[in-house]
Design a protein around this nucleic acid. Structure first.
Lengths: 141, 141
DNA sequence: TATTATCCTAGTAAGTCTATAGGATAATAG
DNA sequence: CTATTATCCTATAGACTTACTAGGATAATA
């Protein structure tokens, strides 16, 4: 299950991607529009900024804005940043790999195999879906 | 990420599926063979039993055994039982559906759309993979 | 200088995860 | 019958994570 942080983060990013002029949007605006607790959203946007997805401007007329074209932001990036690993087990994760303590041999591990397959599928979807795709509400993914 | 409960549960089921005669296998045997805490495994096997996947026998020569042919146990069943929903958000879950509190309209929700696609893909893999598939270590899934 | 809005650290209540404890129950062996 | 074996069952505890909230510092604008 996705954490709320991830869900809210994606929603906020989509909101910003729909802002065609890249003018700053205030936290409070997104918060109201997407029904997200403002303080919580604040912390989420901050991490998105620290990780290079968003820019910000302080003071009146300030807010957050996307730094790149939504087409150039794949969901893999968003998911890894907000949720962490895309894989269901660390031993099949590309970016967050960890050996399982209980498993002597990954090559013969049944869990490893099926979860690798699931990861490959999920990964391909996220790779081929950009923020721009999510933002266009009329297009069926 | 999969919980350890799910991971251990799958491993135990695979262990039992590999037991070709359907003779009872003791918790301690599985526990040692799969490097799982015995007490924890005990509680996992108990829930698998309560949910109709396993049978058990008490006393000497007792243990747990599969009630069905591994070919007839799809991973969807196993996953839902141990991990819960297969979907990443409740609003696209078939068996654990819940409306999102923050989302006024699922049809126009970007998160809903992509997570539906991911669920469809993952679901198909789990549907088409049985315990028997996982048990045969030589076959590539 | 007043106002606005992000920046930043810290904390907290509630829930979940990963077990463990300890005894009750049932089956078998002798 | 009784000792042994192994599951059954409830309860609990410590560690961790989640979903926020508090409160002030900083910077930009008017």
């Amino acid at each position: 299950m996705l954490s709320k942080k991830t869900k809210y983060g994606i929603k906020a990013l989509v909101h910003l991607a729909r802002q065609e002029d890249r003018m700053p949007v205030q936290i409070s605006t997104i918060s109201k529009s997407e029904n997200i607790s403002q303080k919580f959203l604040e912390s989420i946007l901050l991490t998105l900024k620290k990780n290079g997805l968003l820019g910000s401007k302080k003071g009146k007329g300030g807010g957050y804005y996307l730094l790149k074209n939504p087409k150039e932001i794949p969901m893999t990036t968003v998911m890894r940043l907000l949720e962490g690993p895309i894989a269901m087990v660390p031993c099949v994760s590309l970016n967050f790999y960890e050996k399982c303590a209980d498993c002597p041999d990954e090559d013969t591990c049944a869990v490893n195999k099926i979860m690798l397959k699931v990861r490959d599928n999920t990964l391909e979807i996220f790779r081929n879906t950009s923020l721009a795709d999510l933002s266009n509400s009329k297009v069926t993914l």
